[in-house]
């Protein structure tokens, strides 16, 4: 058991960025993010005995993480915070790293206005998944994935523009 646990922890730590990104996509606040992160880790651990290695560990992680986020339920479901993005993000220096962080912060903020499935579509797209892979992960047709991803990208651009940011 201890050995299985160690193998699992090694694998999950190699890919922990997936859990971080899903948690940030689906929650709006540090505490909630931590809760969802914990929930995903727990669900991954519960599902791990069923992982037979037929697919890559990261592929399996995408599914469990996204499915957990899609049905995750907190008692105090918060409404989307629609205050201007600038109010939450300090003025940053113009170093490349800061600009990158700022851009991602704006992206995460804008994504909060998408619905759960649209978030999944954008997440998988940003993770470099093809339309076919997105369709397989979500259980929808490839055509549907393509059309809906394009619509979601347009919607996201409108949200970002509306919030006064352009990149």
């Amino acid at each position: 058991m201890k050995e299985t646990e160690n193998i699992f922890l090694d694998l999950i730590n190699q890919h922990k960025a997936i859990i971080h990104k899903v948690s940030k996509m689906y929650t709006d606040g540090t505490e909630e993010q931590r809760d969802l992160f914990q929930e995903i880790v727990l669900q991954l651990w519960k599902a791990y005995p069923g992982f037979k290695g037929n697919s890559k560990f990261s592929t399996w992680m995408y599914r469990v993480s996204l499915n957990t986020a899609l049905v995750y339920f907190k008692k105090d479901q918060r409404k989307v915070d629609k205050t201007p993005l600038d109010a939450h993000i300090d003025v940053m220096d113009n170093t490349e790293s800061d600009q990158k962080e700022e851009k991602l912060a704006y992206l995460y903020k804008a994504v909060q206005e998408l619905n759960a499935v649209e978030k999944a579509l954008i997440f998988l797209f940003l993770e470099n998944q093809s339309h076919k892979e997105i369709a397989e992960n979500l259980g929808i047709s490839e055509l549907n994935a393509r059309v809906r991803l394009n619509r979601t990208k347009e919607k996201l651009q409108i949200i970002i523009k509306k919030n006064g940011y352009e990149f």
């Binding site: 519960k46 599914r63 979500l138 259980g139």
Partner: peptide, 12 residues
């Protein structure tokens, strides 16, 4: 128990 590793539609 439930299987979270199915595709999202099946799982949900």
């Amino acid at each position: 128990s439930y299987d979270m590793s199915m595709d999202s539609r099946k799982s949900i």
